[in-house]
């Protein structure tokens, strides 16, 4: 299987007045048309990893890598114009909270179609038809109304479906979902995940699912990377989660409450500075 995405020794660093802070410190993985989960606590570098792949890290952040290639094209040296073409067509990302990731003064319809209109030069009517079809695909019951609405008129779950629709309209090859449900209610979360899962399977997308929720990721993905302090500490098949060996991963699993399990205080996550140094293997 040819790799969709190759990442080798990815580093993201920020120059701050207090010195250089490294958010991602030498991350490597390869991704085919599969579903990869990246898990870790806040500040472990998982979000920065996603943004670095799309080259969205803004100064003072700096990204470097021995290799960061999408479908054989080196992303870090790609000219701006060709990068934009990749972003608009083959790479996509769903962010955490639709309240912030949708433009509040633009109608949903305009936001859905601007890519089609500008990039694929579709007519207004044709772009609209495609957008409405996509809204239906994310199971919005009244696409016409949502199409005309503004983001503040949508609930969180609806907003996130709109976001997913917007990102899938150009039929990308790789979707990065960065905590796509952590701003949603639990019931809505399940719905949105089901929709996302269905579309990813049906269209055969590569998926990077970034989350702090290990069990959720393991249900949803084929493979899981566990990140700690900017490094991968363990890589697992999702089905073999119970066999995790690294103390950090086991700690993440232990500090979750279980229905029917023993009551009492949950375990606190222990951290060992040595983990940050060694990385996986």
């Amino acid at each position: 299987m040819s790799a969709l995405l190759e990442v080798e020794d990815l580093r993201v660093a920020f120059d701050t007045p207090a010195g250089v802070v490294e958010a991602v410190r030498g991350l490597s993985f390869t991704l085919g048309r599969e579903r990869l989960g990246i898990v870790g606590e806040s500040g472990s570098g998982k979000t920065m990893t996603g943004r670095a792949i799309l080259r969205l890290v803004q100064p003072p952040g700096r990204v470097s890598a021995r290799r960061l290639a999408f479908d054989g094209q080196e992303l870090l040296t790609l000219p701006e114009r060709r990068l934009r073409a990749l972003r608009g067509r083959r790479l996509a990302m769903v962010m955490q909270d639709p309240k912030y990731s949708l433009n509040p003064v633009m109608s949903v319809g305009r936001q859905l179609t601007e890519g089609l209109r500008r990039r694929e030069r579709l007519s207004r009517a044709e772009a609209r038809r495609r957008a409405l079809a996509m809204l239906e695909a994310v199971q919005i019951r009244d696409p016409e109304r949502v199409y005309r609405a503004f983001p503040h008129e949508l609930s969180g779950g609806m907003g996130q479906r709109v976001m997913i629709a917007m990102m899938l309209i150009p039929e990308p090859d790789l979707l990065i979902a960065d905590e796509p449900t952590s701003a949603l209610d639990v019931t809505v979360e399940a719905e949105v995940l089901k929709i996302l899962d269905g579309l990813v399977r049906e269209r055969g997308l590569g998926l990077i699912f970034i989350s702090h929720d290990l069990p959720l990721v393991s249900r949803f993905c084929d493979r899981v990377l566990v990140m700690y302090a900017g490094r991968v500490v363990e890589e697992l098949k999702a089905a073999e989660l119970e066999r995790a060996r690294h103390p950090y991963t086991r700690g993440l699993l232990r500090c979750l409450p279980r229905v029917g399990g023993p009551r009492g205080d949950l375990a606190t996550l222990t951290r060992d500075p040595a983990w940050a140094e060694q990385g996986a293997e």
Partner: peptide, 15 residues
Amino acid sequence: RQEYVTTARVKGMPE
């Protein structure tokens, strides 16, 4: 600095 700006960039909109 807002997130919708990132969204527009992800969509491949020119700067």
